[in-house]
Design a binder for these strands. Structure first.
Lengths: 204, 204
DNA sequence: ATCAAAATCACCCATATAGGTGATGCCCAA
DNA sequence: TTGGGCATCACCTATATGGGTGATTTTGAT
């Protein structure tokens, strides 16, 4: 297998399911399983962890796909994409509550499917591992720039260090750290460590 | 206008652009502007804050759409969706680095476009509220699980709120918030807010 | 119906953090 | 040469946070 990405396909129409599976294999993905009904899918998910799930909303006439999505949201940590011929606002409103990574209407445009899968996998993994502070990125938003020493202090706070620890880390006195923090707070217009982190997060 | 959602359309082919704009209006969205070139789009974004951007990748033969996406990522906080006829892996790989909310291949399936817009707006607003926090993910690493109320407190801390504010947000007394925090610290074995955030970050 | 866990709240105390003011030396650019 | 930004440190005060103990009510599962 050229890819280590395994995708679960939930689709009650065998022909379409095969079609999708064939496409996935062609693109180098693994097909973890094809499930034709809600309970099959949930059973499978109970014992396996595919990397992504493609979900038909209407299985045998009911919105079982949304139930599966809810199950995934509640119990698993796997991105999923809806594939459905129902694009009325009511269905979409219900669907979006489950936070799908995408929603593709049938007939399936395989190009859109492919790009949506790629982006879903990428965004999902980025969402979970989001860690790089970037001084330049922070400074693009600021009138009064954060200096490198101040940035060291921000990194310390980001890493959960207290003032004394930051002082030791950066070989200065606690008073200096406090001064830096005061200046940082002024520049970012925040008043506490966690507020600072929330602000920084919004800027990166 | 039936919707307060304003969408910027960046598309160099006037006919397609009009087509999209017409569709958006039909669905009740506002069309903030139609831009036919990169610089127009960036100028517009410099002075306006649409709620979402639809981005054609290939403007006049170049991948200018991706440049615009990078500009948005760096300077703004607006979700965007790519609309393009290029679905080769190279283009997609480049595109996904910019974290688009979606990627729809041409010819445009308007049903997919509509659902993707709805889901993008929804997920994006949720992302801002909750960030990337995920209770289940946190709990998979823990012996003693974080409860939902405790998680609300973590979200508050994550969003830079102090104890009093968290108490107001969750309609309980400050003492209760403090109790929750103490329990959270015990469970995660941390001793301060920023240490908590660093720990949570390492778990998601 | 009963038990355990979760959620709620109240104290107290010690420490960390935030905010304010002031001061020194350094370096670099005008 | 001079002034502004930067880095360094001190001291003071007020508030927020962390840590300990104990207690009642609510909730959920068996």
């Amino acid at each position: 297998m050229s890819s280590n990405i395994n995708i679960l396909v939930v689709e009650d129409e065998p022909i379409i399911a095969e079609d999708i599976a064939g496409f996935l294999l062609e693109k180098g993905y693994g097909v973890a399983e094809i499930c034709y009904a809600q309970e099959d899918a949930i059973d499978f998910l109970n014992q396996n962890n595919p990397d992504l799930v493609l979900l038909d909303i209407n299985l045998e006439g009911n919105s079982e796909g949304i139930e599966i999505a809810k199950y995934i949201s509640k119990n698993k940590n796997i991105p999923f994409i809806f594939l459905t011929s129902y694009t009325d606002k009511k269905t979409i409103d219900e669907a979006k509550q489950t936070h799908p990574m995408g929603y593709i209407s049938k007939p399936i445009d395989f190009n859109s499917l492919f790009s949506t899968i790629e982006i879903s996998l990428f965004n999902f993994s980025k969402m979970l591992m989001n860690g790089n502070l970037d001084l330049d990125k922070i400074n693009t938003n600021l009138l009064s720039k954060i200096t490198t020493k101040e940035f060291d202090v921000i990194k310390g706070i980001y890493n959960g260090r207290n003032n004394k620890q930051i002082a030791e880390d950066t070989f200065v006195s606690v008073n200096t750290v406090k001064t830096h923090i005061k200046n940082i707070y002024d520049k970012l217009n925040v008043h506490s460590r966690s507020e600072l982190l929330a602000m920084v997060r919004s800027m990166i």
